[in-house]
């Protein structure tokens, strides 16, 4: 498969490369793209791929009915072949994807790489971050333990709060199936499809518009791709090892009417805001953060000047507020936010 042949032009061509069009990877990119900070987006894509692969496996054993959900998760952990490890890889991949997407977003924001002509690239990225956020909260609900049930109750409370726009997240939407089943199909089909579509758009635009960089030295994308794949595989091995050393657990079957757990750590800043504002915090927090991020290319009119615009400092302030809320969510006492 790797036998080298001459294609008649004096250039060596591998058998696989000729058939897979690998020469398409030999385009120029800035040399500094070999640095880790330029790999954060690619690493996020790798973790999303891991999530999809492990998620498909888990879906073979998961029962999305309220009566069977908790037991089916317990079955995955204790009976399904490699179920415990695959589920833990799924959990740690989600944690890693949350970390890398935030780091990637902060890096791109700080470098103002959302400016013309890359606004749509930025919006696709913000869209992916929002979809990943929804995947995290819907995935929590599927556990259907105490934490999962409380997550589901938050969906209902938030849906009722926003009236007709939130009807989809309540039991009133349809009587033909349970809310848990619909959340399950959101998590396993609707949201991943949206994520992949946005990812395709994001990668297409990066290819067409190039990587934003002032580095005039040039490298070849194939080199970057090989290095990125290597870093991704090392990260994947790390996730696999974490899944062995710190497997994800499962809570007790839920008791309705109480709120005693805290959510998965990427969502703790929303929890902190709920402690301050009640249920409205759950709706306003993500709206403000993702709304600001989406509006950033339209608000930043500072042009090519090196001085940071007010948008940059507003972003830093918002980031510090989110971080503060996160710490409050971590260390604050568990509170009742909704009447369950």
């Amino acid at each position: 498969m790797t036998e080298r042949r001459d294609d008649g032009t004096g250039e060596s061509v591998t058998v696989a490369g000729e058939r897979l069009g690998l020469h398409g990877l030999d385009y120029e990119i800035p040399a500094e793209a070999k640095r880790l900070t330029y790999m954060l987006g690619g690493l996020t894509a790798f973790f999303i791929l891991l999530l999809i692969v492990t998620g498909v496996y888990l879906a073979q054993f998961y029962d999305p009915s309220p009566a069977g959900a908790h037991d089916s998760v317990l079955y995955i952990i204790t009976r399904a072949p490699f179920g415990d490890w695959v589920r833990s890889v799924h959990y740690w991949s989600a944690a890693a994807a949350a970390l890398t997407i935030v780091a990637h977003l902060v890096w791109v924001f700080w470098r103002r790489a959302y400016r013309r002509p890359r606004e749509v690239t930025w919006w696709a990225g913000v869209g992916m971050a929002a979809v990943l956020f929804l995947l995290i909260v819907t995935g929590t609900a599927l556990r259907y333990d105490q934490e999962g049930f409380e997550a589901l109750a938050h969906f209902v409370a938030g849906g009722e709060l926003v009236g007709v726009f939130g009807r989809f997240f309540t039991d009133d939407f349809t009587r033909s199936t349970s809310l848990l089943s619909r959340i399950s199909s959101m998590h396993t089909a609707l949201l991943p499809l949206g994520l992949l579509a946005l990812m395709g758009l994001h990668f297409w635009l990066i290819r067409q518009l190039g990587i934003a960089s002032s580095d005039e030295r040039r490298s070849v994308f194939r080199q970057h791709a090989v290095r990125l794949t290597g870093v991704a595989l090392i990260s994947g091995a790390g996730v696999g090892a974490l899944a062995v050393l710190a497997p994800e657990g499962l809570g007790y079957p839920a008791v309705a009417g109480v709120e005693i757990t805290k959510p998965f750590w990427p969502v703790l800043w929303v929890y902190g805001l709920e402690n301050l504002l009640g249920v409205w915090g759950m709706v306003l927090g993500p709206l403000i953060v993702f709304g600001f991020l989406a509006a950033t290319p339209l608000l930043d009119r500072a042009g090519e000047r090196k001085a940071r615009s007010w948008v940059g400092w507003a972003g830093v302030t918002l980031g510090l507020v989110v971080l503060g809320l996160w710490f409050y969510g971590v260390f604050g006492q568990a509170q009742q936010h909704i009447g369950m």
Partner: peptide, 11 residues
């Protein structure tokens, strides 16, 4: 009756 901790699972 509600529990916030994890089930003890024998792996």
């Amino acid at each position: 009756m509600a529990r916030a901790d994890d089930l003890p699972i024998e792996r």
